[in-house]
Amino acid sequence: MHPLPFSLQLLNACAALLLLLSFAMLSQRRTVNLVNLLAVQGSLLVIATLIVAWRTGQPHLYVSALLTLALKVFALPMLLHRLIRRLNVWWDTEPVINPSGTMLIGLLVVVFSFGLAQPISAVADTAIRSTLGIAIAVILLSFLAMITRRKAMSQVVAFLSMENGLFFGAMSATYGMPMVVELGVALDVLVAMLVLGVFFFQIREQFDSLDLYHLESLKERD
């Protein structure tokens, strides 16, 4: 078996780092660190996109990389940092399931994801042999993070990281989505962020806290 080209090795390294970051986010309890991790995840995505763009020579992927850089590395983390300062939510409370339990479940999820990607990887181009499994794993791990968090802020970060996973999957599997779709998704994420920001203020005003535990009182039946 001859060795992989250098670009693909780099791409695989990016994917591995992404997976590692996902686990880091799963266990991280400081909100500020979570946002920083999100920014790092974003920059890894930029690098991955640049690699694919260089390899395939598709010009629109460069635009996509630029967009990701602006939005996911700078704009969103800045917005989140400002929110954290203004809402004064530095820490998440104890998660629903304890961190070590969450990590174990996360391991199972990764195994499941690789199993899921197996039949696709078998027929696919070498570039995505392992990246697709990792993309699915990132999506599911972010989902898991959303479930285990109690504070709305951490859930939003997990949500954004899920979107990153989707982006990574799309990029590595099909060399990026069409430009229109990508622009649409970018806009969606930005709008969702703004709407969620408004929600934060509303929730805090209503309950004097961003702890979602308080929302339980809204259900109809006891």
Binding site: L116, L140, M146, E220
Partner: peptide, 28 residues
């Protein structure tokens, strides 16, 4: 049916997660 409504976002996310895993398991 109202038992499903637990009032916790994590529970609702759990429903989605479980559904997703279940559907993906069919592909497996």
């Amino acid at each position: 049916v109202a038992w499903l409504q637990q009032g916790r976002i994590s529970t609702y996310l759990m429903y989605s997660f479980a559904t997703l895993i279940l559907l993906l398991a069919f592909v497996l």
